[in-house]
Design a protein around this nucleic acid. Structure first.
Length: 481
RNA sequence: GGCCCCAUCGUCUAGUGGCCUAGGACAUCGCCCUCUCACGGCGAAAACGGGGGUUCAACUCCCCCUGGGGUCACCA
């Protein structure tokens, strides 16, 4: 059986986005599931769009997601180089072979940039591009080249129909009469995607080509190349697009930075949440299960369950996965992951206790410090805030007073256990004939200054005896004024 | 416009001819828990785009229509 080798081939022109990450994930899953290799190849043949540092960020993002490649520019792997611009010789050599075989031709007729492709022509439903020099004699062309003329090399699309079996879409057919003579080698000597991608996939022995559906229309060009060169075609799987709420392909230009993986990482999303949610955008295991670890995905993934229709990315649902995985974390792990997002001067024991009580409600790690600020600094609030809507200032003051007395008498051991604090407050309430609103509410506000917060006993536990009593005293003073 | 792809609740989806009175999840709305907010529990509302076939039987198969999307560069 043929070796399974799946590649992710991003272009270093920006940041890794949701769609790219999902493709990389499926690449990884297919490779792992079939016991093959996951290969990373950087497609940087467009010098103009190249962005410095982009490749490094791709690598970091993949790594963060847990999708580190088996082979690639960093780890090597036996099919070097993994950076496309370093494989120019192969591309140019194959271009010449194509010329010799009459599968491509030098095209002098098109000046750089316009290429003869005019919008109006397409709008009018006009024909496909066929270069004027299509049948120019190769020797003549080479002479003109030698005389200093410039030309591109174009694919000479043959007549007929071409079809292939897409692993997610089934049989797809194209009439080659509707396929343009695409540029294969630019006048600067660099290959276009169509040439480089095919050549490199062949040379790197790629068995499965997974890519987004937007590539479907150019597939016949690639097929013509494989067939013409006598190379075996890899398996193709065109993945459904990830859509924005407007049902259009997700793009930075119109949908903003929420398309970038880095945006989510910086906000404190967990990679396991992103991976899990992304996996489900276009695939499912067939049942009702929705939470999957990466290993489970590897075990259950298969291309024949990948959907054909595009899927809308819903950030609200991502939050659901995020919260789920946050709740799964041990406190130690949560504290560790929080480290990157919090101020260096915060007391780490305090951070750990805060993390314990806010874990259920936390979504973005980056929001941790600001949403829990009152634990780290003295809260500010108005006197009136201390009184529950169904209570009175007198009862609230009593509540604070009795609570202070009881808590003051509690030893340090008691303060270590939240449940002890909670039942102590319960006793105070019962013995002093207070309502929850008379007791718990003012304590919460005294401790946090907030209308919404973790329960009073949890806040007491977080803040500890000294700080808690201090805040209760402050509140009593404020209310007594 | 040409070519190609697609089509189940608002969204992600289950469904591979009878198990469907179309299931689950998110979101929404109720209720419970309750000192608040979350978490959690319970419940409600919510979909097979339309028309033809095929079949004893279509969400499931075929055709047409409609609708949506992608693509049409010396970018990938």
């Amino acid at each position: 059986m043929k070796k399974v080798r799946v590649r992710f081939a991003p272009s270093p022109t920006g940041e890794l986005h949701l769609g790219g990450a999902r493709t990389a994930l499926y690449d990884y899953l297919v490779a792992r599931n079939l016991g093959g290799q996951f290969v990373l190849r950087i497609e940087d043949t467009d010098q103009e769009r190249y962005v410095e540092g982009s490749m490094e960020r791709f690598l970091a993002d993949l790594d963060w997601l847990g999708l580190a490649p088996d082979e690639g520019p960093v780890q090597g792997g036996g099919f070097e180089p993994y950076i496309q611009s370093e494989r120019l010789e192969s591309h140019q050599k194959i271009a010449q072979e194509l010329l010799e075989k009459g599968l491509a031709y030098y095209d002098f007729s098109t000046s750089a940039g316009s290429g003869g492709f005019e919008d109006e022509a397409y709008r009018a439903g006009r024909v496909i591009y066929r270069g004027e020099d299509r049948n120019l004699n190769l020797e003549v062309a080479r002479e003109r080249l030698a005389n200093g003329e410039t030309a591109v090399i174009r694919l000479k699309v043959p007549a007929g129909k071409i079809e292939f079996n897409d692993l997610v879409r089934g049989k797809v057919t194209f009439d080659l009469a509707t396929v343009d003579d695409a540029v294969l080698l630019k006048s600067d000597g660099y290959p276009t995607y169509h040439l480089a991608n095919v050549v490199d996939d062949y040379l790197m022995e790629i068995s499965h080509v997974l890519r987004a559906e937007e590539w479907l229309p150019s597939t016949p060009k690639h097929l013509v190349l494989y067939d013409g060169l006598g190379w075996p075609r890899p398996e193709f799987a065109h993945l459904p697009l990830i859509l924005a709420t407007d049902k259009k392909k997700l793009s930075k230009r119109v949908h903003g930075e929420g398309v970038w993986i880095g945006t989510y990482r910086d906000q404190g999303y967990l990679p396991e949440a992103i991976v899990n949610y992304l996996a489900l955008l276009g695939w499912n295991a067939g049942g009702d299960q929705e939470f999957f670890s990466l290993d489970e995905l590897v075990a259950k993934f298969s291309l024949d369950r990948v959907h054909k229709a595009g899927a809308v990315f819903d950030p609200i649902k991502l939050d659901h996965f995020q919260n789920h995985y946050i709740k799964q974390l041990t406190v130690d792990d949560l504290a560790k992951r929080l480290e990157y997002f919090i101020s260096s001067d915060l007391d780490r024991d305090l951070v750990r206790r805060v993390a314990t009580v806010v874990q259920n409600r936390l979504v973005r790690l980056a929001d941790f410090e600001s949403s829990s600020h009152y634990f780290f600094e003295l809260p500010e609030y108005e006197k009136e805030d201390l009184v529950f809507k169904k209570s009175t200032a007198e009862s609230s003051l009593m509540g604070l007073d009795f609570a202070h007395q009881a808590l003051f008498s509690l030893d340090e051991a008691g303060w270590q256990i939240e449940e002890t604090l909670n039942s102590l407050l319960g006793e105070v309430r019962d013995h002093k004939n207070l309502t929850n609103g008379d007791l718990f509410w003012p304590i919460r506000v005294a401790l946090t200054g907030q209308q919404k917060s973790p329960s009073p006993s949890e806040c007491l536990w977080v803040l500890g005896k000294d700080e808690s009593l201090k805040r209760l005293t402050l509140a009593k003073d404020k209310l007594g004024q």
